[in-house]
């Protein structure tokens, strides 16, 4: 081998090693330490209100659970998506089957960074892109509430995902593109509460904002509706350019989130019925804050 040729190959090899190292480090899960948490004692009562707006029940309670069983977060519901079938895990306080052994910081890392206690990535079927916008104090309150819910010993089943989505490490690159705790919209102080509820714990954008081909939220079409990510049909456009609720008043949107009745007395259906079961537990002030933010959305026209 000639000198220049050898040097070139060496160069390529070095670049390759750097590339792999860079890819490995770029895709590394983010986490914080317990020392980074604010000095705040979680308040389960406040946590219960966050639990309602967060809608944890909708995915983590057993399919069709009613009344008291809605507080048993045994997991098990299956979500068929374009990337495979995800099974909601058991997040009840059971030490073996659930998350009873988690430390507070494990919960915060899961919610803000989508990072599991063992340092691996959670798949974004778990809507941490929204929860990342939550305040640490709120996460601690929510955690305090989750700790006192009933335990379930239902064992988790693995997700059924095909290659390349089965490579969990690659979720790190997805997060580089889509995990950003910054608010989506710039709003005045009067809309901040509504923005927090909608963009953060309420995670409305997970269904009402269309997704890119690799499943990231298309923020340029924020709350502009799109195909149902979990089945047939379309999720409505919530912006003033949409047809479904653009004619509704703030009070009518708030009423819908309370009773499930639309202004012409149809009712919420599909997964929105689950959402309304949760928003019915919010305060009138919070429902109105959500409605106000919705009415202030920039219009997103029909998809091309």
């Amino acid at each position: 081998m000639t000198g220049p040729m050898r040097r070139m190959l060496l160069g390529v090899a070095v670049l390759g090693v750097f590339g792999v190292a860079a890819a490995w480090s770029l895709s590394a899960p983010t986490r914080i330490d317990a020392a980074d948490l604010p000095a705040h004692t979680g308040d389960p009562e406040r946590g219960a209100a966050l639990f309602a707006i967060g809608g944890c029940v909708s995915c983590h309670a057993a399919e069709g659970a009613k009344d008291a069983d809605r507080l048993v977060l045994s997991g098990g519901r299956a979500f068929k998506t374009d990337f495979g079938t995800f099974h909601a895990p058991n997040i009840s306080p059971d030490p073996e089957a659930g998350i009873g052994r988690w430390e507070t910081v494990d919960f915060v890392n899961a919610m803000k960074f989508g990072t599991a206690p063992d340092g691996s990535h959670f798949y974004p079927a778990f809507p941490y892109t929204s929860y990342a916008r939550m305040r640490d104090e709120d996460l601690l309150d929510l955690w305090a509430y989750l700790r006192i819910l009933p335990a379930s010993d239902r064992a988790n089943e693995p997700h059924e995902i095909g290659f390349p989505f089965s490579v969990r490490r690659a979720v790190g690159f997805w997060k580089l593109l889509y995990l950003d705790p910054a608010p989506v919209l710039t709003v005045g102080e009067d809309l901040e509460r509504g923005r927090y509820l909608v963009e953060g714990p309420g995670h409305c954008g997970e269904c009402h904002t269309p997704r890119s081909p690799i499943g990231g939220p298309d923020l340029s079409r924020w709350l502009g509706g799109g195909p149902n990510p979990d089945g047939e049909g379309t999720i409505p456009n919530l912006t003033p350019a949409g047809k479904t609720i653009s004619s509704w008043s703030e009070a009518e949107i708030a009423e819908y989130l309370k009773s499930g009745f639309t202004p012409d007395f149809d009712t919420a259906g599909g997964s929105m019925a689950d959402v309304v079961a949760n928003t019915a537990r919010l305060s009138d002030a919070d429902r109105l804050a959500i409605a106000r933010y919705i009415k202030a959305l920039p219009p997103v026209g029909p998809a091309e």
Binding site: E232, G233, T267, G269, G270, M272, A273, D274
Partner: peptide, 15 residues
Amino acid sequence: GKACGDCHKQFRMPK
């Protein structure tokens, strides 16, 4: 309303 919603939840496609 709950009875209406209960059926729409399971058996009606989103718009």
